[in-house]
């Protein structure tokens, strides 16, 4: 079986170098604007930074994928088209796209530029995946984080493109690219602005009793007792009240960690493993990438290497997420 490809995030040139130096086969990144789904303040790459990043990655035998995975604004597709054009001109190894209009544009204008389907396209079944392959010659699909391992295995019997799956990091609990919760609360959405629960709408408020409240826009997302580990108020990760009961209704403050399932994923037919976290620091990148490098290398010798990445995990707890059916 072919060795699994390790696809790692970078939000800055420093993070890119950290990822490559820690053993990433591929680094994925985006331009510093709304064309990518991690459009966070102070993050992402200018054109010259991408050029240098490609050079650095090449010198160490690593690849660069450019994420252009938001949905272009009606009446203003230019920034998105230019992102594809520039990525092609600079020589990225693939573009990661979500929008059908963009796939069409890239296939027409840059037929030789390798196209991957972003998780934001939420292609969760064979008919959808085969459509993207037939219509736009997509070479790889990043699977949405809604499928169990047996479902991934069954899916592979009906498709012939490569798949890439998330193995670590923040976990969208909704089908990706099909969630408007953020814009309902803040006006800004992952699909159009490339942000979820944007920092400009986040407030942390200390209460008199030492507890802390996190708010997003006009809504309280969570409250933490003194000393309790606190999360960023991503709105699906908050504590809410339904039927008179308070709970983490959508998802507990946990990170995905599928390190113990790498062999299963490989047997299911997966080609590449993806680490989430372009918005995280280079220390996180280095730690997580090294850990997964060891795990993937360990698979060669038949030794499954468990990692302990609890400290960098959100809420400092981990989950196998949707890969296990009980998550549903």
């Amino acid at each position: 079986m072919k060795k699994l490809e390790l696809v790692c995030p970078a939000g800055t040139p420093a993070a890119l170098r950290a990822a490559v130096d820690s053993g990433a086969d591929t680094v994925y990144l985006g331009f510093r604007d709304a064309t990518n789904a991690r459009n966070f303040p102070g993050l992402n790459f200018s054109r010259p930074e991408l050029e240098q990043g490609i050079e650095y990655a090449r010198s160490k035998g690593a690849h660069i994928y450019l994420a252009i995975n938001t949905f272009p604004t009606a009446g203003d597709p230019e920034p998105w088209h230019k992102a594809v054009d520039d990525g092609a001109a600079l020589g990225v190894d693939a573009v990661i796209l979500a929008d059908i209009g963009m796939l069409d544009y890239a296939a027409q204008n840059h037929p030789d530029l390798r196209r991957h389907l972003s998780v934001q396209a939420s292609a969760s079944n064979p008919e959808a995946i085969n459509f993207y392959q037939d219509a736009f010659d997509v070479k790889r699909v990043v699977l949405p984080r809604v499928l169990t391992v047996p479902e991934i295995k069954a899916l592979h019997k009906e498709i012939s493109v490569e798949t890439e799956v998330f193995v670590f990091g923040g976990l969208c609990v909704m089908a990706e690219g099909r969630c408007s919760l953020s814009s309902y609360v803040t006006g800004q959405s992952p699909n159009t602005n490339g942000v979820c629960s944007p920092a400009c709408d986040v407030r942390y408020e200390d209460e008199d009793d030492g507890s802390m409240v996190s708010r997003l826009g006009d809504f309280t997302i969570n409250a933490f007792a003194p000393g309790e580990a606190a999360g960023y108020p991503t709105l699906c990760k908050g504590r809410f009240v339904a039927n008179g009961e308070t709970s983490y209704l959508f998802e507990d403050p946990v990170s995905l960690n599928a390190a113990s399932m790498l062999s299963e994923l490989q047997e299911a037919g997966v080609t590449a493993l993806k680490i989430e976290g372009r918005q995280r620091g280079k220390a996180y990148i280095a730690e997580v990438v090294s850990s997964f490098r060891k795990s993937v290398d360990g698979m060669e010798s038949g030794a499954e290497v468990e990692n302990d990445l609890t400290q960098v995990a959100e809420g400092q707890r981990k989950t196998a997420g949707a890969y296990q059916k009980t998550w549903r």
């Binding site: 949905f71 272009p72 009606a74 929008d99 059908i100 209009g101 959808a128 099909r178 699909n191």
Partner: peptide, 25 residues
């Protein structure tokens, strides 16, 4: 999107769950 693929070439409606944000799509 899977249903749009199955309905290719025949008249059909598209609901609000398919991402159509721009003219290209």
């Amino acid at each position: 999107v899977s249903a749009t693929a199955l309905l290719k070439g025949q008249p059909h409606a598209i609901g609000p769950y398919v991402n159509i944000y721009n003219e290209g799509t």
